[in-house]
Amino acid sequence: MLEVKNLKKSFGDRVILDGVNLTVNDDEILCIVGPSGAGKTTLLRCITGLETPDSGTFLMNGQPFDPQGTKDSDRVIGVVFQDFNLFPNLSVMDNITLAPMMVLKETKKDAEKQAAQLLSELGLSTKGDLYPWQLSGGQKQRVAIARALAMKPKILCYDEPTSALDPNLRQEVAKIILNLKKSGMTQLVVTHDLDFAQEIADNLLKVKPID
């Protein structure tokens, strides 16, 4: 269970987050919805350690952690970016195995075995040797999911998972996210798409811009 308590963030004198509280229960999906400018992305960036909050507490199963920390206990969040941010110079396989090998010190063999497993679960078994430019948008997203999962996060976060894709792929994404939930993944989804959110979410958190 992820808990965020009293999260505050301002840029200059513009207050973006003013004491946000949220909880994501185990094996559930929390969707954060709201119009652009409501601070959804800033909230996600604080949780994923890409932005330093002004104040706030992060707890994973009751234990405080630092999203920007480098200890094992801080390494609990996986991220799927809006534009996926795959590494273009690495093959699909290497995109997935790089961090497990360099950070978790897994052997190449173990990392590749795990990556192959993830790829097959995501319907990409034949794509391991391809490079990101050879993939469609939906495939890139699934590689990004596999890359995040390979680091064994306790919770997986998505930034606008539908916005870089064709509208007809929305259903595909929903299916993937719901499948991951079935296999026990806790997930947090930031989106501006309320229909999509209602379809997948166990809980909804609506955010509004602060005047």
Partner: peptide
């Protein structure tokens, strides 16, 4: 985004 992706992977 490349730096950020690497950062969340803890590289």
């Amino acid at each position: 985004g490349q730096f950020e992706a690497a950062r969340v992977l803890r590289l």
